[in-house]
Nucleic acid binder design. Structure first.
Lengths: 235, 235
DNA sequence: GATCAATTAATTCATCCGATTTATCTGAGT
DNA sequence: ACTCAGATAAATCGGATGAATTAATTGATC
């Protein structure tokens, strides 16, 4: 069972080994998913776009579409993890919030910059994290990352006065900000429309400024248990 | 031609008039789109989920799926616009950034609160704004809103020192933040998992704090044109 | 160069889709 | 009661899809 992937019919799928077609399918699927949306692209379309006359190639190499998505996601996650490890090592011991936010932002932007234009990963990833079914894949993967846990610790040490609740909220906000702004830039590059920022590095700088401001923002005390009935009167 | 909607085959579609089925389809489609994703739901499935034995009901009442999406979006946009008009009128003349950010945040949160649990609009909307094809629908609609233009002016007056570029970036950031955090809460409510915030109002407060901090964050000067070759050495 | 497993090609099949067409039902106006 | 347009039901069509099956090809190993 362990390490074995099976189709819905229970048929065993070939274990991963070197295959040019495999890589070709990964790249093609990533592009199509980003451009047209994951649910809008069939395995057949992936096969055909990859120049394969066999419409069952995806099933043969990966199994289900979810397995294909997982394979694409893992490739990028591995590369980004390397960047994060380096950055976290550099930031170790720092009490400057900026350094730790950079550890959060730069793996994404530098990875996209390293891929060269055009890229599709940002749009692909945004879809994965917004899909209810695929959502948990990313969460599980990210929790395995030791560097991400270190990052969390370092970041929290820069913000000792923040409650756990607010920290949780602003962590989620930061993640969404990074994801969506990378999508924004990637899409502009793909469509040839003007980009908000001149480079991935500039976007990283903007994001770091914004997220540091976001994390350091004062927390307004909640009004003392406003009555629901009073609120509806506003309408 | 004006005001006439046609199918791809050119067949005229009934103009909007009172029909319980019409409303039923709108509600059903909104729910299915939010839960399963717009592209993953066929018109047939909408018809069946709405208890209609006619699989062409959607086509009859709305035309294409894009027209259906437009109809759903407009219903909510109209209600949110009303909230925004009120808030902008209240904020008129204020030089407190907080007031204007509230005008940006609260139409979404108060609309979702008013809908009562469970809601689907936040997830529906997030898909619309992230779909390349449907994206422009929202943009065109929002530009028609006079209150939104007033909001933009009032907000900019609170931030006279910010360059147009930074303003544009942070405006986009704020929009994404609001959209995604509403999705986050709506999804948690729908799945029965713990919510980050105890109420829509509390989420609004969190968002306003965060966005004010984001907008007021200092802008770090860009390093003087770093060489691309130097950057790659980092790898 | 024979063997054989891994890979790719080519078909087939039941199912679902969007769209169209035809028929039936409903209710307001006369 | 009759008419008739709006609304719903029901059936049909070509086309696409995922899955499964079978056949052909490739390439490493002996």
């Amino acid at each position: 069972m362990a390490g074995e992937v099976t189709t819905m019919a229970g048929k065993a799928v070939r274990p991963e080994r070197g295959s040019a077609t495999r890589e070709l399918i990964l790249n093609t699927a990533e592009r199509l998913f980003a451009e047209r949306g994951m649910h809008a692209v069939s395995n057949r379309q992936v096969s055909e776009a990859a120049g394969q006359s066999n419409n069952a190639v995806v099933s043969y190499h990966f199994g289900t579409k979810a397995d294909l998505v997982r394979a694409i996601a893992r490739r990028h996650a591995d590369q980004m993890e390397q960047v994060r490890v380096t950055l976290v090592a550099e930031a170790a011991g720092s009490t400057d919030l900026r350094d730790w936010v950079a550890c959060l932002v730069r793996p994404s932007t530098e990875h996209l910059a390293a891929l060269g234009s055009p890229t599709w990963y940002a749009r692909f990833r945004a879809q994965v994290v917004s899909d209810p079914a695929l959502r948990r894949i990313t969460v599980e993967e990210s929790l395995k990352s030791a560097s991400l846990r270190l990052l969390l610790v370092g970041l929290n040490q820069c913000l000792p006065d923040l409650s756990a609740d607010i920290r949780a909220v602003r962590w989620v906000m930061a993640r969404h900000l990074i994801t969506q702004m990378c999508v924004e830039r990637e899409r502009a590059l793909a469509e040839g429309t003007p980009t908000l920022e001149p480079s991935w590095d500039a976007l990283a700088a903007s994001l770091i400024d914004a997220i540091v401001g976001l994390w350091q923002a004062p927390v307004t005390p909640v009004p003392p248990k406003e009555n629901a009935a009073d609120k509806t009167k506003r309408w």
